[in-house]
Each structure stands twice: as structure tokens, then as C-alpha cells.
Amino acid sequence: MRTLVFSAKVSQSKVKTLLNTILQMGSADENKRELLQLAKLNALQLLAESGTNKSAKLKTQETRQILNSACQEVINAEAESLQKRVS
């Protein structure tokens, strides 16, 4: 799975399929959950790079979904905790 995620030659549709597979996977193990989130963020990065090769650029809605995913699931929570620590 990781080989696929880190290969820049993977097509956009394959990354989307992979992303869906990752989204459907769940685990009670915290380490595995973290690894899945890492894989998801890497897949999202590959999607974010769409349009640089032969693939089409992302639709506005897709861009928004990636941003929501990165911001709401990771950045906002971290910002809140950092804000508490510094204030």
C-alpha cells in the first residue's frame, strides 16, 4: 500500500480508489489508526498534485474536501491544543 501511495506515477483514479479503500478501513489499534491517517494524508497529497502530469486538475469541491480533511481532522485540533499551551 505504501509503495503505491509514494509512487508519483499512480494515476488519479487509482489514488481515489486507494483513498476510498483507506477510508473504509478502521482499526481498534491506535498505532494502526495513526498509520491509516498517515496513508490517507499521503494519498490526499498525491491528489493535491493532480494536474501536473496528464491528469486533470481537481474540481473545486474536491479541493474543498481535501482542505476540510487536512484542516478539520488534524490542523484545527493541534492549533487548539497549542493555543491552550501557550496562553
Partner: peptide
Amino acid sequence: LLYHAFSCVEKLIENQDKKST
């Protein structure tokens, strides 16, 4: 995780429509 989340945002800005992103 935070670094990868920021990288997602950076790649979107660099490769998609900058203004709307």
C-alpha cells in the same frame, strides 16, 4: 501528521487554482 496535513494544503496551493484555494 500535522506536517503532512500542511503539505496537503501547500500542494493544493501550488498545483490547483491558487486564488480559490
